[in-house]
Design a protein around this nucleic acid. Structure first.
Length: 641
DNA sequence: TTTGCGACTTGGCTCCAACGGG
DNA sequence: CCCGTTGGAGCCAAGTCGCAAA
């Protein structure tokens, strides 16, 4: 199923929580909550924060503002643990940053890990052409296996995929093979396909010891290649493994799907490290494309990928100083935007009346970016990628204007494919001036013409830069996502139980995901797991009524006998009922949460858009006994035990 | 002004280890 | 302790944005 098909028309307001771009719920732009100065607030997301509550309390006094740390506490052996902990305590956010544009002074690493070499198929696994078995050359066979592995996927049936694959496959064939194999439809990969299925099955069936061995080998590789030294600190590398060869898929309707993503060799790799470091060694008998020493960039190695001709990088893990600083900066920019967003909004409203078309277009586009959290929308080369758009690249065919719709006036309907070919569909009433402007922009245009023909991202960002230092289109997404979370948390959180609070948090998070249009395909197991949960709830309900009956009986018993023993029995039964009630409530909350989350992906906003300080502040307000927080008093501190 | 490139962030999906309920 | 469920790391594609050459 194509991503576009997965997304259904957006639901009407479900009544549970206001959608940020719903007609009646305007975001409160002028509140001051986002302003808190959390000198003592930790910034990991609340979930993690909850797990590690005690840890926070321990070192409360010397904590400072700190951007989210995405470090995972990996299980390490005892010996390494001490060192690791020491490393984790490094408070880079308390240190000076480079001001000269350099990213580091010293960088040493061991280079990337290459994909394992191709292992030829055993002799009994055959490829058939036109019904007859045919032995392929190693190169041709390798590429054939890529296709064979995908046989179950729908896209091996797609014309473009097959055409691209076949073309690239033929390039890897010997001239003899090339003259023989001329029609993909006559190729039979099924034996190969079955072989790989059996292989993966065998992998699943491996003994504990074998699995352990693999795990240890991975760990060894991680220890050797997964870290680097940057400026006196050992830092985790994000992706130290080179991407293995395979068939390019791409997302959505990609014109290059099926093309061969070729194997990367040491000769393709540019190494970046400091001059005075121990340079990584290429595998025996090979050499690097280049070794350079550029401390104005953060990457350790790079290569040019053959599908789009773009550069791929090996960079550090999000837990690293270099990523963390950037992340922190991003949220600081969003906070600065908060301070002047009113001015900017007034400005673009004024600009709707401008004499100049380009200024009106700029102002309307900015309004969409601000109100709907649309992406900037760079132009893309036609035929190179799937046809997707963002704000500046919207075309006439992507919007429809309705002067009147139901009880609303000036409604704009958006329907287009955005990043990753995820469909954006929204109907939204706009101000009359915006509507009139849109009508003007549409005049004398064809469906495939640009809506904003006098605008592109470069013009827009230049303008934004003039309005505020460091302001670009994407800052609006960050800002509006974070402030939406904050407002929704304030609005939704009740004095309820912890499960209810978690539901509130997830709902606030969902409001953000909806704003940013972060969708997912409903998990394949969704219906089933929902059913299972419902079964559990039903069972729990039965349990509850049984427990209640028993309680009643115990009470009657006690009334009759009035002895200590029966009194105790009543207490026991009462406790049991209470426990089951809690369990039931928890299950029901879980079911609600899951159902609401069916098509919504929370991960991206959590990871990239929500200032972790908001989550931590919320968490502290909702759990802390008596922590005095230097934040606004909107969250009431309460006892929970 | 346009185009292309380089560096970096953001994105959905997959898979598997770890978790927790029975 | 078993086993189904799930969270999240890992993967790698696809964006954004600045800059410099054409």
């Amino acid at each position: 199923m194509s991503p576009a098909a997965i997304k259904s028309e957006p639901e009407e307001d479900n009544g549970f929580y206001p959608s940020p771009h719903h007609k009646n719920s305007k975001r409160e732009y002028d509140d001051e909550e986002f302003e808190f100065k959390p000198k003592k607030v930790k910034t990991e997301h609340d979930k993690k924060a909850k797990k590690r509550k005690h840890e926070y309390e321990e070192d409360e006094e010397d904590e400072d503002i700190k951007p989210k740390k995405k470090t995972k506490d990996k299980k390490v052996t005892e010996g390494k643990k001490a060192k690791k902990e020491e490393e984790e305590k490094w408070k880079w956010w308390e240190e000076e940053r480079y001001t000269d544009g350099s990213k580091w002074r010293f960088l040493e690493h061991k280079g990337p890990v290459f994909a394992p070499p191709y292992e030829p198929l055993p002799g009994n696994v055959k490829f058939y052409y036109d019904g007859k078995p045919m032995k392929l050359s190693a190169l041709a066979e390798e590429v054939a296996t890529f296709f064979a592995k995908m046989l179950d996927h729908e896209y091996t049936t797609k014309d473009i995929f097959r055409k691209n694959f076949f073309k690239d496959w033929r390039k890897e064939m010997t001239s003899e093979e090339k003259s023989k194999i001329t029609d993909l439809n006559k190729c039979n990969f099924s034996e190969m396909n079955e072989y790989f299925k059996a292989q993966s099955e065998a992998r699943k069936q491996m003994s504990k010891e074998e699995k352990q061995k693999i795990k240890e080998e991975n760990e060894r590789l991680l220890q050797e290649y997964g870290f680097c030294i940057m400026d006196n600190h050992k830092e985790r590398i994000g992706n130290f493994r080179i991407e293995p060869p395979g068939l390019f898929r791409g997302r959505g309707d990609h014109p290059k799907m099926g093309m061969l993503k070729r194997r990367i060799r040491p000769e393709d790799i540019i190494i970046n490290c400091s001059k005075d470091s121990k340079h990584p060694k290429p595998p025996p008998g090979t050499k690097w494309k280049e070794v350079r020493h550029d401390n104005k960039v953060t990457w350790l190695a790079s290569w040019t990928e053959n599908i789009q001709g773009s550069i791929k990088y090996i960079m550090l893990n999000p837990s690293s100083r270099i990523k963390g600083e950037k992340d922190w900066q991003k949220y600081e920019t969003a906070r600065r935007l908060k301070k002047c967003v009113d001015r900017i909004r007034n400005q673009y409203r004024d600009d709707w009346k401008s004499k100049e078309m380009r200024i009106r277009q700029r102002a309307v586009a900015l309004y969409f970016i601000d109100k709907l959290a649309l992406r900037a929308g760079n132009e893309k080369e036609e035929g190179e990628t799937a046809d997707t758009v963002g704000c500046c690249s919207l075309r006439v065919e992507h919007i429809k204007l309705y002067p009147k719709m139901d009880d609303q006036e000036y409604v704009v309907e958006f329907d287009f494919l955005g990043k990753d070919s995820i469909r954006y569909y929204n109907k939204i009433p706009v101000e009359k001036r915006v509507f009139k402007n849109l009508q003007l922009f549409l005049e004398n245009k064809q469906p495939e013409d640009d809506l904003f023909d006098r605008l592109n991202t470069s013009i827009l960002n230049k303008h934004l830069q003039e309005l505020m230092d460091g302001l670009t289109a994407k800052v609006f997404r960050t800002y509006n996502a974070s402030i939406t979370l904050q407002q929704q948390l304030k609005e939704l959180t009740s004095d309820d139980s912890i499960p209810a609070k978690i539901l509130s948090y997830n709902r606030a998070n969902r409001a953000v995901a909806i704003l940013c249009n972060h969708q997912r395909a409903p998990p394949k197991t969704f219906e089933k797991s929902m059913q299972n949960l419902q079964t559990k709830i039903d069972e729990k309900q039965n349990q509850l009524s049984a427990a209640r009956k028993q309680l009643k009986a115990a009470k009657a018993d006690h009334k009759a006998s009035h002895d200590e023993k029966s009194k105790k029995a009543v207490e026991v039964k009462r406790k049991a009922v209470q426990r089951i009630e809690e369990q039931l409530m928890k299950l029901q909350v879980q079911a609600t949460d899951r159902e609401e989350n069916k098509q919504i992906a929370l991960g991206t906003s959590k990871l990239n858009y929500l200032d972790p300080r908001i989550s931590v502040a919320w968490y502290l307000f909702n759990t802390a006994e008596s922590v005095v927080l230097p934040i606004s008093s909107d969250f009431t501190i309460e006892k929970l035990n």
